[in-house]
Design a protein around this nucleic acid. Structure first.
Length: 312
DNA sequence: CAATCGTGGGC
DNA sequence: TGCCCAAGATT
């Protein structure tokens, strides 16, 4: 049983009121001026930003987000577009399945919700590509709901400040969820608290070299008060890259993205020397609905949505 | 539940 | 240079 699991509802000695005040004050002074946080933001803009930000840094997302908002200011605009155009406009953000799922989510928003992004967690998480984090984030940021918005930043801040460990567990635990929810203040401060903790993790309480000297809660941080002990958990495995199917898929997608006309298969052969692996990558991309095979050994980005239920 | 799924920048 | 990491979701 973990340290957190022993604490109900909050760890003894944790002054959550002080933590709220300190973090919220810090956020007022240091929050980044991001477009999806601007006063005129729409729920759709928030949703698009959250999907793009999954595993992708802010600096790379910003220009693509602007272009998407310009082209597809409402869910219905994207839904009316070919899925391949969403994939193309995704550019090099990575994980292009997100673009396909976002396109499918736009369709579902039109079909189920009259074209308006739904405001509840349950409705949001039912959309393709939206999981626990994104549903909570959109419900909170765009609609003011009270949720535990548990992303990698928040998990790291709470692991350090409250649990006293350098890193959060590999996967979110029920104890983490309960702690995060218990810490969300009541009333209309909830969404601001959520974004403030996230921002603290992104700018100060970073994974590798935390800037504790600039941290507003350094004097409350359990990890720091314990002498910043190194993580004692199992080593975190990095994902292999060179030689993997992901690398091959990436190269194939790059070619197809950059071509507005169907690409002959022989032009794809230059991407990878191993024919078997190349074929496998091509097959899985077709199966994923990310590319479309045509007669005559031609391939292109998809012009019509994959069969219902396939995107996911 | 562990594996899979892109990409590029910083240290 | 190679490794680690970035607002996860899905099966």
């Amino acid at each position: 049983m973990s340290f957190l699991a022993l604490c109900d509802p909050l760890p003894p000695g944790l002054d959550s009121t002080l933590m709220h005040a300190t973090v919220l004050s810090w956020y007022s002074a240091h929050a980044r001026d991001l477009p999806w946080r601007a006063p005129g933001r729409t729920p759709w803009g928030v949703l698009v930003s959250e999907i793009m930000l999954q595993q992708t840094p802010v600096v790379r997302v910003e220009p693509v987000w602007h272009e998407w908002m310009r082209r597809w200011p409402r869910p219905a605009d994207l839904a009316a577009e070919e899925p391949g155009e969403a994939i193309r406009a995704w550019g090099r953000l990575g994980y292009p399945r997100r673009a396909l799922r976002l396109h499918a989510a736009a369709g579902a928003i039109v079909a189920r919700h009259g074209g308006d992004v739904p405001g509840t967690y349950d409705e949001l998480i039912a959309l393709p590509g939206i999981g626990d984090y994104t549903a909570a984030a959109v419900a909170s940021f765009a609609f003011g709901a009270r949720h535990a918005v548990l992303d990698t930043n928040v998990r790291r801040v709470l692991a350090r400040a409250v649990a006293g460990t350098q890193y959060a567990p590999v996967a979110p635990t029920s104890a983490e969820r309960r702690l995060a929810l218990d810490l969300v203040p009541d009333g209309d401060t909830a969404p601001r608290w959520a974004v403030a903790v996230m921002e603290l993790g992104a700018l100060v309480c970073t994974a590798r070299s935390p800037r504790c000297s600039a941290c507003p809660i350094a004097d409350q941080c359990a990890w720091r008060l314990a002498g910043s002990p190194p993580d004692d958990g199992p080593p975190r495995r990095g994902q292999p890259w060179h030689g993997t199917d992901r690398q091959v898929r990436g190269r194939l997608m790059a070619i197809l993205r950059d071509s507005t006309t169907p690409v002959p298969k022989h032009l794809l052969e230059a991407t990878w020397p191993d024919p078997a692996q190349r074929e496998r990558a091509l097959d899985t991309l077709v199966a994923d609905g990310l590319i479309e095979p045509l007669d005559g050994d031609l391939f292109r980005l998809p012009t019509s949505p994959p069969p219902a239920g396939q995107v996911g």
